[in-house]
């Protein structure tokens, strides 16, 4: 969860000064800021649970690619604006249902972070939906671009709902969420918005996988090269 927030934040930050309009620049970087905050909270807690004294910064800047567990969809390059919006729509819809349930987690820290996050994600999701509708039901060109993005990203959505044995154990203790329930809600909501946007829902086909084993696309390594540069070049440097 921390890695998802961190990597997604990194990608959205890349829109800074590059978005089609100023308001969009503000919106996307606002989201990135929310996500950096979430990453801090999640990674601090992960370090605390691990008990080896690692801080949020240690986890963000000193882990290698294979030790990151963000979903592949988060690390994919931004593509064009339609591609970024389609991804934000898929991920924020997932996060909406995910954090909505995580608010009831038996783990009070996770529940508190989730309660905070859900308020922010609601804004991210509303914004993404606005754009999906506008682009999908807009001009022929905008329609084609967002449809292409939806089609290309589709194979990365299955991974969002994958679970491991450890998830089942956490689920039994009411710490983790019930993924199949979230998957159903996600599918229903996504289908509803896409059809309202006059877009075609891709057929279920091959789904990419690997992140829960730390296996990534080639893109994550490039992100880390830039993100971790300072700590690697000047270890322990601080502001």
């Amino acid at each position: 969860m921390g890695d998802d927030a961190l990597i997604q934040s990194y990608r959205l930050s890349e829109w800074c000064s590059n978005a089609p309009i100023l308001e969009e620049d503000l919106a996307l970087t606002n989201f990135a800021l929310d996500m950096t905050g979430r990453a801090q909270a999640m990674l601090s807690y992960a370090g605390q649970v691990e008990g080896k004294g690692r801080t949020d910064d240690d986890l963000a800047y000193k882990r290698k690619e294979r030790d990151f567990y963000n979903h592949l969809i988060m690390e994919l390059p931004n593509g064009d604006f339609a591609y970024t919006i389609a991804r934000l729509f898929f991920t924020s819809t997932f996060e909406f249902f995910f954090f909505n349930q995580l608010q009831n987690s038996a783990d009070t820290t996770l529940a508190a972070i989730a309660a905070k996050t859900i308020k922010e994600v609601r804004y991210h999701n509303a914004h993404a939906i606005d754009w999906v509708l506008r682009l999908g039901d807009g001009t022929e060109e905008s329609h084609n671009k967002i449809q292409k993005a939806v089609n290309e990203l589709w194979m990365f959505t299955g991974e969002l709902f994958e679970t491991e044995e450890v998830d089942a154990l956490l689920r039994d203790q009411n710490i983790a969420v019930d993924m199949p329930v979230i998957a159903d809600k996600w599918k229903e909501h996504v289908a509803q918005v896409l059809s309202e946007a006059t877009l075609t829902i891709p057929e279920s086909g091959y789904m990419q996988s690997g992140s829960n084993k730390g296996i990534h696309t080639e893109h994550l390594g490039h992100i880390l090269t830039e993100m971790q540069y300072l700590q690697r070049a000047y270890p322990e440097a601080t502001w």
């Binding site: 990135a32 800021l33 929310d34 996500m35 950096t36 905050g37 979430r38 801090q40 909270a41 972070i113 905070k116 996050t117 922010e120």
Partner: peptide, 8 residues
Amino acid sequence: TPTYSGCP
């Protein structure tokens, strides 16, 4: 308590 999680 922070107002927003990423509040700088």
